[in-house]
């Protein structure tokens, strides 16, 4: 039930966006994909999610498919937070009477039990992303793809959501592919960090993050420094 990406390439006409990506993400692993703008991080997720076909190579995704979490929460504005989650359950084929209870559980899980009847415009950015996370979990797919989900949030809220996501991931082991341009975020959350180069995007470097590093601020900071340096090297290649 792992994700197997084999020599994946993607181009739009002449411009190659992704080139020769090969990696395997094992079941229950949390992988952070890091890269500067224009490295095709989002394209990689779209191809894995099946929103776009690959130009070459192959992507093997577990039978259940992948849930997706967008950068902006992408909650439907005419539905309450609860109804947004219920819609995901409905499209999954959950019978009506089971939906309400399950949506309640999911809201509870992301600490939104009291805000379920609010509409998206009545929620703060962090609450919207939590509702979006609850909806993605409601899809109940083995894989969760996250496209810079916390990029637009303020630092305090983002910090909280990191903890929230980590807690939920520990409790409900999904295979997570988390795209970000934030090195600290990648080190904070990932068990493994993939660094993509830009234009075309290929895997330039890879780090494993041992469990104790994630709870050790000093080690975290050291590793963040290493990765940042490597990322800057990649960006410097594009100076000329």
């Amino acid at each position: 039930m792992s994700i197997a990406i084999e020599n994946l390439s993607k181009d739009y006409g002449a411009a190659p966006v992704l080139s020769g990506i090969t990696t395997t993400i094992v079941t229950g692993e949390f992988v952070a994909v890091l890269g500067a703008s224009g490295c095709g991080k989002s394209t990689l997720l779209n191809v894995i999610a099946g929103l776009e076909p690959p130009s070459a190579g192959s992507v093997g995704v577990p039978a259940g498919g992948a849930a997706f979490m967008f950068q902006d929460a992408a909650l439907l504005p005419w539905l309450t937070a609860r109804a947004n989650i219920e819609l995901a359950l409905e499209l999954r084929g959950i019978p009506r009477n089971a939906r309400r209870a399950r949506a309640g559980e999911l809201l509870e899980l992301v600490h939104l039990a009291d805000a379920g009847d609010k509409r998206p415009h009545e929620l703060s950015g962090g609450m919207r992303q939590r509702a979006s996370l609850a909806r993605a979990l409601g899809q109940d797919r083995p894989v969760l793809l996250m496209d810079e989900p916390f990029a637009a949030l303020d630092a305090i809220t983002r910090d909280l959501l990191h903890e929230e996501l980590e807690r939920i991931w520990r409790a409900h082991r999904r295979t997570v592919l988390f795209v970000t341009h934030n090195v600290r975020e990648a080190v904070r959350l990932g068990q493994r960090v993939l660094l993509l180069s830009s234009r075309p995007g290929r895997i330039a470097a890879e780090w494993k993050i041992p469990g104790h590093v994630r709870t050790d601020p000093a080690a975290q900071a050291a590793l963040t420094g290493d990765i940042t340096q490597r990322l800057r090297e990649e960006i410097r290649h594009h100076a000329n």
């Binding site: 020769g20 090969t22 180069s197 290929r202 895997i203 330039a204 470097a205 890879e206 780090w207 494993k208 993050i209 041992p210 590093v213 080690a219 590793l223 290493d226 490597r230």
Partner: peptide, 9 residues
């Protein structure tokens, strides 16, 4: 493909 694995161990 330039892939390097740097361990944090």
């Amino acid at each position: 493909m330039p892939t390097s694995i740097t361990s944090a161990t």
